[in-house]
Design a binder for these strands. Structure first.
Lengths: 247, 247
DNA sequence: CGTTGAGTTGACCATCGTCAACAGGAGTGG
DNA sequence: CCACTCCTGTTGACGATGGTCAACTCAACG
């Protein structure tokens, strides 16, 4: 049930009672990529009242696995690594969150994985509780959330194929092409792929060791399929990489 | 907008205009496990009108990857393997669907993986289009679907850890314990785990070859951690297996 | 400069994959 | 009823991919 007051202010056109002066959702450069694309102007304004911009320095943690999941996040800038640890310290990175990605899809009581910033990160933080209440009134937002979840699931299944059935060289080629495509949606498609994460991160994502990642990258570079540049890779022979990734 | 006719019939208590004589949703033994648990009596009845019971013989296909996704399915009996193929024939099984599981969470135009029956399977088939229309009117069903999707995502992330960072022995132990738990929700918890799928299927799920699966199972049996029985495994030393799976 | 941490490279090795032979059960046909 | 095939699963010998251990380079930072 919507109170008369809220209904009245929500229906007055053009004026958002929650409007902030700067860094507003309306100007958000990842809005069209994020879950917020499902919201109209007034809804965006309502959501903005719940949100709080946060920044995270490199290597700092957004949240830890099994912690109470108080917040959900929209990544607005930078890269976040999402990972699970085994008791003996082995680590599997289950994904990298890029600008536009949403953390907290599960809306569960506890986080299913840990998350920390790879490079300086800015994110839109919201209380999970407040977001859940907002979500209850917006079935179209739930639909968007569900689309995000099934997209993630699809990526996870592709990653299972990669981890279970591909060689080191195929893993690296798939990783580079996949990351290129994801950056493409954020920045526009380019043959230069930013790699802000360390070799260790790449290895823990692909189920390889740091040495195998390094060796495979240098081999691909020696064979002129890629060019190693500071904090990234330039894809020279995209067809060759696609052949490896598809194989 | 609900038409007067539909509203009237939907609100008449106790009488379901679509009721079938046998095999009704009301008596469905996996209802509480499935997405249908989110529906009340009348809604269940409406859904039943869209559903059609199907059976699939072992090794027959429910659908193939990249086919037009005309239908969605509720598995009511048997086990379905869900898999992706690489062009050279390598296969990765991305999951086994058990009774109560829903196929078609993504509601996408095309299936993201192939599915076929491991043993005789019965499933509730619905046209995706009709189901989508129904779903549009039932936000609580969408919520349930989203819970299923995020649960699947969580399982997929666990599987990434398994595929990327665990030894053959740990993979087998995790697999057996995980399957035991899932069967537990269907049949009640037991130390005997049914394995209707072949060694090849297990290998393709765990990122191993058939030989490694066989060797690891016989080794665990020789060491009295498990007992191999026809079409299954009896877990003898559960603590030992849990130690391997957690490690 | 010295220290630290990330990355690269090399030598060696272990786990798991490959190839092959064999066992046992189900189905088929003489 | 028995021989035959076929299929799944098991076991062994061997080998390759990728992991382990170690040394080294280089840039950042004090």
């Amino acid at each position: 049930m919507i109170s008369p007051h809220v209904a009245a202010s929500a229906s007055s056109p053009g004026a958002c009672p929650h409007a902030h002066t700067r860094e507003g959702c309306v100007d958000c450069k990842v809005r069209s990529l994020s879950i917020c694309a499902a919201l109209d102007g007034m809804e965006l304004c309502e959501l903005e009242a719940l949100a709080q911009h946060s920044t995270f320095a490199p290597k700092t943690t957004l949240f830890l696995q099994d912690e109470a999941a108080d917040s959900v996040y929209n990544v607005t800038d930078g890269v976040v690594r999402l990972y699970k640890l085994l008791p003996d310290g082995r680590r599997q990175i289950v994904g990298f969150a890029l600008p536009g990605d949403f953390l907290g899809l599960a809306m569960a009581d506890r986080y299913g994985f840990s998350a920390d910033a790879v490079e300086p990160v800015t994110a839109c933080r919201m209380s999970r509780e407040a977001f859940a209440t907002f979500l209850d009134r917006k079935p179209h937002l739930l639909r968007r959330l569900h689309e995000f979840a099934t997209h993630e699931l699809s990526l996870a299944q592709d990653q299972m194929v990669l981890l279970g059935r591909r060689s080191a060289e195929e893993k690296i080629a798939s990783f580079l092409l996949g990351l290129r495509e994801r950056w493409g949606r954020v920045n526009g498609l380019s043959v230069t792929v930013a790699l802000p994460m360390s070799r260790q991160d790449i290895g823990d994502f692909l189920g390889l060791t740091i040495e195998t990642v390094s060796r495979t990258l240098t081999r691909l570079a020696r064979e002129k399929a890629i060019l190693l540049v500071p904090d990234g890779v330039r894809l020279i022979d995209v067809a060759r990489l696609q052949g490896l990734a598809a194989a």
